[in-house]
Nucleic acid binder design. Structure first.
Length: 225
DNA sequence: GACCAGGCACATC
DNA sequence: GATGTGCATGGT
């Protein structure tokens, strides 16, 4: 897929293996329960994970990682607790929205994970919730519900367009399908690949350093510069 | 002080 | 359909 002097025909699985050997397994998502994944997925929208951790810690201190408690609690109190994660007014609404969907239709996130419905049906249900877009829904499907769907985020777009594998103009699902059609259909690979992309992005592929020769994928990118 | 972070909805053209 | 903007805190 990529051709250059250092790596001929590197495909998406080669890149996966390269990242895995560089960074090691990430064991995502960092959460103790599926519902904590749901909360984290909403809180991390356009927000660094460090800030999300502070908000999650506030909720954990009061034993609030619980669907019924979040649903019934005062929204102003919820805003206060998640404030460190930013955008707290809209995120409190979004947490209420998705939690109401879970409780009304499945009771708990654990029950939701056990449903017989296919991935596409579940995805459409999640996308119908106000505040849940594609990345958030797919993060929940993959990491909370253990459904094999590839998560595309800003790092995925940035890194793989710099590598020339995808085009910047491609929309979310086009990019997602490129990955799903070119990597092993394996839950663990899906989980690790996205986590490894984030790890790579945080360390080497920020907006400010578009090309860093320390980057494990430098060999793939430099021909493009 | 500017810029950025594991998005999303909405307005406008 | 593409592009722009508001939402907000905390780290670099």
């Amino acid at each position: 897929m990529i051709k250059n002097n250092d790596n001929d025909n590197m495909d998406l699985m080669d890149i996966y293996n390269k990242l895995l050997s560089q960074f090691g397994a990430q064991y995502w998502w960092p959460a103790e329960t599926p519902y904590e994944v749901v909360i984290g997925a909403v809180l991390t929208q356009n927000t660094s994970w460090k800030n999300v951790e502070k908000a999650l810690e506030n909720l954990k201190k009061e034993n609030l990682i619980d669907e019924k408690k979040i649903l019934s609690m005062d929204i102003e109190k919820l805003k206060e607790l998640i404030k460190p994660a930013g955008f707290y007014n809209i995120k409190a609404e979004r947490l209420k929205n998705i939690t109401k969907y879970i409780v009304d239709n499945y009771g708990t996130t654990n029950n939701l994970a056990k449903t017989e419905k296919d991935i596409n049906s579940l995805r459409n249900e999640l996308l119908a919730i106000k505040g849940i877009g594609k990345e958030t829904s797919d993060s929940i499907l993959l990491y909370a519900l253990n459904k094999p769907i590839f998560v595309v985020d800003a790092y995925t777009r940035r890194i793989f367009s710099r590598c020339g594998i995808i085009d910047k103009s491609m929309d979310y699902d086009e990019i997602r399908l490129i990955f799903e059609n070119n990597i092993l259909l394996n839950l663990n690979v899906y989980k690790e690949y996205h986590a490894l992309i984030v790890e790579l992005g945080k360390n080497y592929c920020k907006k400010k350093n578009p090309l860093c020769n320390e980057c494990p994928l430098y060999c793939c990118c430099k021909k493009l510069v």
